[in-house]
Design a protein around this nucleic acid. Structure first.
Lengths: 136, 136
DNA sequence: TTCCAGCCTGGAATTAGTCTATACTCTGCA
DNA sequence: TGCAGAGTATAGACTAATTCCAGGCTGGAA
């Protein structure tokens, strides 16, 4: 994703652009992927950036709230941020921690039950946990 | 769930019975519900038990590994333990943290895509996030 | 200029969960 | 009757992800 595209995406989600936010966005939005805050911080540091940890966390949280990226709760030890925001689902390898996408149109969910009273739906997520086969 | 039923369930899952494990199981298996480790510890303490935190955590982890209860990763801040282990899905109220069950037969998933190479499926979970409607 | 809101930062604080070293409790067996 | 060993329980230290905080910076409005 190019710099102007990123700027545009920030603007469309009502997020004010700053150098740090652009850096974070550039890493995460580079391609469809799933990264944790620490992974992003690591990459930024490796590339010579001096963003603070707090800023990376704050920025990702903000991006998540504004719908610019998607927050995934899949690993009990850390959050992952998904650069792809349109509806889709995931495979999660519990051994390796690798996440991969399942296009929304490959899963059809039927007979959805009524929501609990007084609530409205926010999202539907299908998570298929997998593990490496024993090669023994 | 009565004491003998709990003993039986432990035995069927290859978990050796101890007073502490019985206490933990009694709280969680009392009825179909979703509790965090801390909630269970709290209830035990309130009931006068002196189990240690480590024991509660160890016990729940063991129960989860042996399939006696189900571990849920749904709230980024804590794990929940589900007393119901047969296949089913969940509503999760992101505002209140309340989890509720969706019977498996109320959700039909079709066209499941192929698993990533070299992996085998462990579980399929559907999570529907909801939020309280604005009453404004 | 001066103000102010919003942003960034390092470091402290928080918190779920795990680890560790020690002590206890059975159960089989001499 | 007593010992050995496996499996457990416990308090408290520790880890790691994330959030909080207090101070400093910046760019535009007045």
């Amino acid at each position: 994703m190019s710099q102007p595209d990123i700027l545009d995406r920030l603007k469309r989600h009502g997020v004010q652009a700053t150098p740090q936010r652009l850096e974070v966005a550039a890493v995460l939005l580079e391609c469809p992927q799933h990264l944790s805050a620490e992974q992003i911080l690591e990459r930024l540091r490796a590339a010579g950036s001096r963003v603070s940890k707090a800023t990376v966390y704050n920025t990702l949280k903000l991006f998540g709230e504004r719908g610019l990226v998607r927050e995934l709760t899949v690993d009990p030890d850390r959050k992952y941020y998904d650069s792809t925001t349109h509806a889709h689902h995931h495979f999660y390898n519990v051994g390796t921690g690798v996440l991969s996408d399942i296009p929304a149109d490959q899963v059809r969910i039927m007979n959805l039950p009524p929501l609990p009273a007084g609530t409205e739906q926010e999202s539907v997520e299908v998570l298929i946990r997998v593990r490496d086969k024993d090669t023994a």
